[in-house]
């Protein structure tokens, strides 16, 4: 079974930050951890997000085995097991791993698995006006991006 992944088609990100707020709302997060973030250097925008890597450096770096990759490919953190050492933050090549100062544990994108179970797109993707945020099995996402047929609409 092909694994799930998340991918931003960077060329079509126009820096509206809707994905960021949708994510905060979905996960009930306040100021601090940003599971998705768009860095602006006009006219370019650089989305920072979890790629749910097959060989996830965050998972390998965790001394407590708190990070796992489930059978569908989603890289998840067990916050009960996390000791807040931040090794995963350092290991992530994308800067996607976040630290929750209030709970003193690491926190990361869970690809909105609860929404996916209900067959709804991840929150970030659901609001993107250019449709540049893709999720799904890695093969079909890669195909969409490379063939330039990336969907412009989600719904």
């Amino acid at each position: 079974m092909a694994k799930l992944t998340l991918m931003f088609f960077k060329k079509e990100c126009m820096g509206c930050h809707s994905c960021e707020v949708a994510c905060k709302q979905e996960h009930g997060l306040g100021v601090g951890p940003r599971l998705v973030q768009v860095i602006e250097q006009a006219p370019d925008f650089y989305p920072v997000y979890c790629h749910h890597c097959p060989d996830a450096p965050c998972k390998k770096a965790c001394p407590e085995n708190a990070i796992s990759r489930d059978e569908s490919g989603v890289v998840l953190i067990d916050r009960q097991q996390c000791i807040g050492c931040k090794e995963c933050l350092e290991a992530c090549p994308f800067g996607a791993m976040q630290y929750d100062e209030k709970q003193e544990v690491a926190i990361k994108c869970d690809l909105c698995i609860e929404r996916l179970k209900e067959n709804r797109p991840p929150a970030c993707s659901s609001v993107c006006p250019t449709g540049c945020i893709h999720w799904g099995d890695s093969r079909s996402v890669a195909k969409q991006i490379s063939s330039g047929t990336a969907r412009t609409r989600i719904h």
Binding site: V127, P129, H155
Partner: peptide, 18 residues
Amino acid sequence: GDPASPISHGTLCSKGLA
């Protein structure tokens, strides 16, 4: 965002979401 909206087609910006 409401997918049935004839104006926004399900999208919603950061301001509305907040």
